[in-house]
Simulated assay, not measured.
Amino acid sequence: MLTRKQHELICFIADRLAETGVSPSFEEMKEALDLKSKSGVHRLISALEERGFLRRLPNRARALEVIKMPERPEAKKAAKTVQPTAPSRLPQPANDVIEIPLHGRIAAGVPIEALEGATMLPVPAALLGAGEHYALEVAGDSMVEKGILDGDYALIRRTDVARDGDIIVALIDDNEATLKTFYREGAMVRLDPANRAYDPQRYAADQVRVQGKLAGLLRRY
């Protein structure tokens, strides 16, 4: 037995898949169900997964597959007089492109202030794995030896932890962000460029907060 909100969500997702072949974004689901936050959408989707109505497709961010549908009120009325001739075929999801927030420019040279913005960037779903992502436009050339060029879009998976060798977005002193390779040196953090013209940057560990790890790149030609 589904709650009213669970029933509304599964019907909304199924209708959108039938109409466009693409499952709705979490923001669209939040607005359609008049929820206050996306965390409510996450809880509803998890409940529908547990009950066998939905499945999240692996390696495709926000791609949802409807496995089965609850009986809609209008279907119950029709069942009294009309017998179904064949089972309906559920639409196949086609989430080839999704949109993620684009939060300004990030330095691949010396740190610059991290900019916030409301712009959304279309991204091939195959470039992203599980988790929440955002994008930053690269400014500078200090990561060129890793193939990260000025003007590229860095696709970042949100996380606050990193291992040595990870390429991360580091927030320095809570107001400047930079894209570098992360290493620990005792009580210090070393942020390495990938360009012989630049020196590593060293900070006290409490000066640096990990804002995410590099998940992919987009480049315009």
Rank of each mutant, 00 (worst) to 15 (best):
S37Q: 08
V22D: 05
P73I: 13
H42G: 11
L48E: 14
L9M: 01
K68C: 00
A63D: 04
P70V: 04
Q83A: 12
S88Y: 05
I10T: 00
P70H: 05
L54Q: 02
L90F: 12
P91T: 10
F26M: 13
E65Q: 03
D15V: 04
E27T: 11
K68Q: 10
L44Q: 09
A61P: 08
M69E: 01
E49F: 10
L54T: 00
S23Y: 02
A18E: 05
S37H: 11
A18D: 07
R72L: 01
A78N: 11
P84M: 12
F53E: 10
R55A: 15
R43H: 15
P87N: 03
L64P: 04
E19W: 01
H7F: 06
F53Y: 04
A79N: 13
K77H: 15
L57R: 07
R56V: 03
R56I: 04
Q92N: 14
S23R: 01
L33Q: 01
E8N: 01
K77W: 14
E27H: 06
A61D: 13
R56F: 06
K77M: 15
P24K: 08
E27P: 01
Q92K: 15
K68M: 02
E74R: 08
S37Y: 08
Q83W: 08
C11G: 00
S25L: 03
I67L: 03
E31Q: 00
V82R: 01
K76T: 09
L17M: 14
R89Y: 14
T81N: 09
I67V: 12
I10Q: 03
V82H: 08
E71G: 13
M69F: 08
Q92S: 13
A63F: 05
P58F: 02
A14W: 07
A78L: 08
E74N: 09
Q83H: 02
P24H: 09
R60D: 12
P70L: 02
Q83E: 14
V22E: 04
A63L: 06
K80Y: 15
R89D: 07
P73T: 14
C11Y: 03
E49M: 15
P24L: 05
K38M: 11
L64H: 10
L64F: 04
R60V: 00
R16H: 07
S39K: 04
R62F: 10
L54S: 01
